[in-house]
Write a protein that binds this DNA or RNA. Structure first.
Length: 880
RNA sequence: GGGCGAUUAGCUCAGCCGGUUAGAGCGACGGAUUUACAUUCCGUAGGUCCCUGGUUCGAAUCCAGGAUCGCCCACCA
């Protein structure tokens, strides 16, 4: 066996170890009727993606769950893959084209798509390689892509099924239009952000008679599409005007003045211009009052169908020109500063234009019903539970989903039009999984396929079953669906989680998963989201390079409780690195004395009994925490046990055990480390594998990742040993504290210490363990005495059941020591007063549970005892 | 306008069902080279648990109201 180097170097380990795992097939899972499956489907990262801290957190959590389940003996499958990310990917390739001075239109649809596929083949695996560096134990054979043949088949199947059930329709509605991407967006893709704008007041002259009606708008350019003015029916100011007409300034179009409850009397002037083709509310008004729908903008937000001076102007240029012209005409009123919410494209952040447009929609209400029920009745649960409410609130108010996009990269709609039929006034719409040769109604050919593609989420909402082979009834689908846990960030609940649940019930009649684990967003130390434009990114790959993968994973997981946002700064990764190094050196210490003992450890010394007992508790605690998905609790429990219990105390003591106890002590340490490595493996897979390989017993599994999850051994839980050892620790600590407080020079070894107790067993215990005390507390002799009050020039610490008396032979500063003890006595008196007050309260005596009263009494007795001792020592000092 | 979350040490955060003297890591300060680890060890200082009221024998914890910050949802043009 080669000796371990003094420091853990992740670079020497990670890549080779990962390749070995993969080559051994440890990541693979196949249907197996004998074992309970455990399945996770990865939230497919964008194929254009590069690993950021959010991915790192998300995938670390999934890997922890998968490795935990695998070690528990479950048939653990983690399905990886990527999303074609329609708009995002198209944007990336268009940017590359722009560098060549070309547009996608220059290439044409077919050649452009070829370009995108080439790009995907070349760069689309980047994120998957990066996931491997993170240690992700996915079954890579099952990697899927949302535009794979099988997944595309699933998309068409669902589209046709929904259409046939009347759940997909085409219609002319107001949608969010991104003028830059030149496509429709779903509501969720155009999140509103608070924007500082202006509220322009414009006076519309009345057509009949004198006077005017003043309206207010944030988008003056839309006035060119106005086809009415609306007021509230009960608004006395405008009562007389209802049914009359106003004139659109600069255009002089006659606009009816209509009355509708939708108008807010409080806002602006209480009169509103109505632009049915460019505003969702106005659209409703337009339908209700049978107004004209006048679309005044082109796909790239230039004005159209408007009077000459404005025709062809960009929407914002038009706005400026209109303001000038309105001013000249004398109809421009006040311009107020106004903060309002404007939708922005989630891909390019351009302000979206609400715009009337023929698009395809999915009727969501019927789909939502079973998805609401499943969460209400607990079939699917959110962790943390508070997201349930957010989900239900959204689902109960769900709007129809605009699924058509005017881009090229994506699943093209399986919709064909028969122009011959349409000319004769028939619908002429054919929806079919395969291209129809001719029109089934009139036999005309050729047919024209719809140009649009489907929203990216229309393929990812099928992900939990499409990746397993659906619509084919594969054995994977039968074995692994429904999946178990979905791990994702809160931002994606509406986009993806909710829709997967709906699709799951629609296609499979079963939920796609049973638990949704929502983790927080990774932010920088000031609480801002990490983003390129802010320049506050901490790159996970850089952190891996600097601190190692295990350090990255450990730090992310311990950074915060699940569901809370994580505020990250680089220094935190050092803690993870240090922990890995600590484990490394604990094992190194063990192996420096020979190979890991194979013998079954016996609880010989009190330290053995203590650490083995603590180990059982740790096994129990970590298992429970993982089952409850309290990852940070599990990880910090292991940290405390390994660093503080194993390293700070057990290893230190093991250096001073009797020669006869030595070999067994090594076996105990080896055992504690070996079990701990297994517990820690899901969190820090690399260093634990490396060390476990040194510690593993003959005949065990070849790798820690396929070894069994530890089970606690109740026989080894030893409360008495724990209490005894805790007392020992307290004595050691008190001696250390006293020495430090009195500034005893480091080279001065306190020659002797008395441990005083009324309890003979305690005296004997310290007498038996004086070697340890001497070593750990820096003292030469330890004597267990019954009474040393006559000892002068000594100091004391009074603990639970024992007193520690430290003669300091001239080193003691009587004044300083008196002050120290007086202070301690004062603190004690405070405690006593507080505790007495509590006990003297008759209410407390009559209402508190007996255990609490008993406990409080003991506490008081102890405090009084301690105080008595302190006073005795003070009187000794005074006599000096 | 609704909803959610946060507020605990200088910083980042734990603290389950109410029960001793509220914890950790980092940072600060003092000390240490004794048998793995200086990516180490030992020790110390540092707290109005956001505020106000309530429930209770007892509140960081439960309830009500408020403040500040953050996020989500919503058609005030």
């Amino acid at each position: 066996m080669s000796a371990l180097p003094p420091q853990y170097n992740p670079k020497d380990v990670e890549e080779a170890r990962y390749q070995w795992w993969e080559s051994q097939g440890f990541f693979r899972a196949d249907p197996d009727p004998k074992r309970t499956p455990y399945t996770i489907v990865i939230p497919p990262p964008n194929v254009t993606g590069i690993l950021h801290m959010g991915h790192a957190l998300n995938n670390t959590i999934q890997d922890i769950l998968i490795r935990f389940a695998r070690m528990q003996g479950r048939n653990a499958l983690w399905v990886p893959g990527t999303d074609h990310a329609g708009i995002a990917t198209q944007n990336v390739v268009e940017k590359a084209l722009a560098k060549e001075g070309k547009t996608r239109q220059d290439l044409g649809r077919e050649a452009f798509l070829k370009r995108v596929w080439e790009w995907k083949e070349q760069y689309g695996h980047t994120i998957l390689y990066q996931l491997k560096r993170l240690g992700a134990s996915c079954d890579w054979r099952r990697t899927r892509f949302t535009m794979d043949e099988g997944l595309s088949e699933a998309v068409l199947e669902v589209f046709v099924r929904l259409y046939e059930k009347g759940l997909i329709y085409r219609g002319n509605y107001i949608i969010n239009w991104c003028p830059r991407c030149q496509t429709a967006l779903a509501d969720e893709e155009a999140p509103r952000t608070e924007t500082q704008g202006k509220l322009y007041h414009i006076r519309y002259p009345l057509a009949e008679g004198k006077g005017h009606i003043e309206v207010a708008t944030t988008r003056p350019e839309t006035m060119l599409g106005d086809t009415a003015v609306a007021v509230h029916p009960k608004d006395k100011r405008y009562n007389a005007l209802i049914g009359r007409h106003a004139l659109l300034p600069l255009v002089n179009r006659k606009l009816p003045i209509i009355a509708d409850e939708a108008v807010d009397r409080e806002f602006g002037t209480g009169a509103v211009k109505v632009t049915p083709a460019h505003d969702p509310v106005d659209f409703q008004l337009g339908k209700k009052h049978r107004l004209e729908f006048l679309n005044v903008m082109t796909d790239d937000a230039k004005m159209t169908n408007v009077p000459k001076p404005y025709e062809g102007l960009d929407r914002l240029d038009c706005r400026s020109k209109l303001i000038v012209d309105l001013e000249k005409t004398g109809v421009l009123g006040a311009i107020d500063e106004h903060v309002h919410n404007v939708g922005h494209c989630y891909r390019c952040h351009t302000a979206v234009e609400p715009r009337l447009s023929p698009q395809w929609f999915v009727r969501m209400k019927p789909l939502a019903q079973p998805a609401i029920k499943a969460v209400k009745n607990g079939t699917i649960k959110f962790v943390p539970a508070r997201w349930t409410k957010v989900y239900l609130n959204w689902m109960e108010n769900i709007q129809d989903w605009c699924i058509s996009r005017q881009i090229w990269w994506g699943h093209r709609l399986p919709v064909w039009y028969c122009d011959a039929c349409r000319q004769r006034g028939r619908p002429g719409v054919i929806v079919s999984k395969t291209p129809p040769a001719s029109c089934p109604t009139c036999k005309a050919e050729p047919l024209r396929q719809d140009e649009d593609v489907l929203d990216t989420w229309f393929s990812s909402w099928l992900w939990p079953f499409s990746t397993l082979g659906w619509p084919k009834q594969t054995k994977e689908l039968a074995a692994f669906y429904p999946t178990d846990t979905l791990v994702t960030a809160q931002e994606i609940i509406f986009f993806w989680v909710a829709r997967m649940i709906m699709a799951g019930y629609f296609c499979m009649k079963q939920p796609p998963f049973t638990t949704v684990s929502i983790h927080g967003t990774v932010r920088d130390i000031t609480g801002k989201k990490m983003s390129k434009s802010l320049g506050n990114i901490i790159d996970p790959l850089e952190m891996i390079g600097r601190y190692g993968t295990d350090a990255l994973r450990y730090t992310l997981v311990t950074a915060t409780a699940i569901g809370q946002d994580i505020f990250l700064s680089e220094e935190r990764f050092a803690a993870g690195r240090n922990f890995a190094n600590k484990l490394w050196n604990a094992t190194r210490y063990l192996l420096s004395q020979g190979p890991a003992p194979a013998s079954v450890p016996q609880a010989q010394t009190i330290a053995d009994r203590w650490i083995l007992s603590r180990l059982q508790r740790t096994v129990k605690q970590v298992t429970a925490a993982l089952e409850a998905m309290l990852f940070n609790e599990a990880a910090s429990g292991l940290y405390d046990f390994l660093w503080h219990d194993v390293c700070d105390w057990y290893i230190e003591i093991s250096k001073y055990v009797q020669p006869a106890e030595k070999e067994n002590s090594r076996a105990v340490l080896a055992h504690a480390l070996e079990v701990s490595m297994r517990l820690l493996h899901p969190f820090m897979p690399f260093v634990t594998e490396e060390l476990w390989q040194q510690l593993r017993l003959a005949g065990s599994k070849p790798s820690i990742m396929v070894s069994a999850w530890p089970a606690p051994d109740k026989q080894l839980v030893d409360t008495k040993a724990e209490a005894q050892f805790e007392r020992f620790k307290a004595v050691v600590t008190s001696i250390r504290t006293t020495r430090a407080e009195l500034n005893v020079p480091s080279d001065h070894r306190t020659p002797v210490v008395w441990v005083v107790s009324k309890d003979a067993a305690i005296r004997r215990f310290f007498d038996d363990h004086k070697t340890w005390l001497q070593a750990l507390a820096h003292v030469h002799e330890v004597a267990a005495l019954q009474d040393v009050r006559k000892q002068r020039d000594a100091t004391t610490a009074v603990l639970d059941g024992v007193e520690v008396v430290i003669p300091l032979g001239g080193l003691i500063d009587v004044q300083k020591e008196t002050k120290r003890l007086q202070q301690k006595a004062a603190e004690k008196m405070n405690d006593i007063a507080r505790t007495e007050a509590r006990l003297n309260n008759p209410q407390f005596a009559s209402k508190a549970p007996v255990e609490v009263i008993e406990q409080t009494r003991n506490q008081l007795a102890q405090a009084q005892e301690t105080l008595k001792k302190l006073h005795e020592y003070l009187s000794v000092l005074q006599s000096m």
